[in-house]
Design a protein around this nucleic acid. Structure first.
Lengths: 145, 145
DNA sequence: TTGATTGCAAAGCCTTTGCAGTTCT
DNA sequence: AGAACTGCAAAGGCTTTGCAATCAA
């Protein structure tokens, strides 16, 4: 399941002139284990496995891994972004403004939007980045009904 | 056309125990004139009409106006949010990761998504908040072939 | 009068940057 | 050696907060 092996990661990096370092491996692992993590959470996780790793390394590494399409990020709220492993199944997020619940939905569910935007104006949607704000079933009731 | 008159604004505020101040009027006017504005742009605009208005007043006022549903905001990118007057027609935004273009689309276009989410899990979408990341027609061509 | 509102300055959160030292090839 | 990488500390962008002075009603 899932994640890139160290060897695959190394190839991915080498082919673009980058190097495989323990830090990079740890960051990718952390994202893969946490599934949904802010840079801060990644930092904490990585630090629990190895001492002395710096914030800026986390930021630089997440950016790098994203450019290699090994991780993606989305914005679920006002704060820090959330990183996902590319190896996890594609999904969009629904964010409830009422209770804060974040729910993942299958790309199928947002496919009508993706198609409509393609048809309407040739726009190609990045589903993994998609975070839809609104109100979950519970919170809608409490407001509307 | 749009905007709330001073009187309407005052009623809106008074009914909730708030007061009408010159600053609040100016901030709402600025959002209505600019249509798409970051807090910074609102500040600049307001300052061009009256001296001595402070950043924190802008932030506090935008938050207040949003709670009164006189303005909305959305996140088009990594930076500051963009505020819109509630009096402007509803629309969602498409943000191109290639060229940065931001395009407004009619709620009709995203209606399929809204309905799908409602049907699928009772989720009520906040269309005005919706910003879809992806690639515009031009930038898709250049990437895909 | 009196509670809401403002300006100001400081602090806070999240992120980026410059640089010197280190590590890989 | 030469280039990539890291840690560190400082700076940067955006936003929030505490407080005393001011203002609307």
């Amino acid at each position: 399941m899932g994640g890139a092996t160290a060897r695959e990661l190394q190839q991915e990096l080498r082919s673009r002139g980058y190097r495989l370092t323990p830090q990079r491996q740890l960051v990718l692992e952390a994202v893969e284990e946490l599934r949904h993590a802010t840079p801060d959470q990644v930092l904490e996780r990585v630090r629990s496995k190895a001492k002395g790793i710096n914030q800026s390394t986390i930021y630089r590494t997440l950016e790098l891994l994203e450019s290699l399409e090994l991780v993606t990020h989305t914005h679920l709220g006002h704060g820090a972004p959330t990183y996902h492993p590319a190896s996890s199944p594609d999904h969009a997020h629904l964010v409830c403004a009422g209770c804060g619940e974040v729910r993942q939905v299958d790309p199928d569910v947002v496919a009508p939007l993706v198609e409509a935007l393609k048809r309407h104006c040739g726009f190609t949607t990045d589903v993994r980045h998609l975070a839809v704000q609104g109100r979950c079933a519970n919170c809608s009731e409490n407001t509307e009904g």
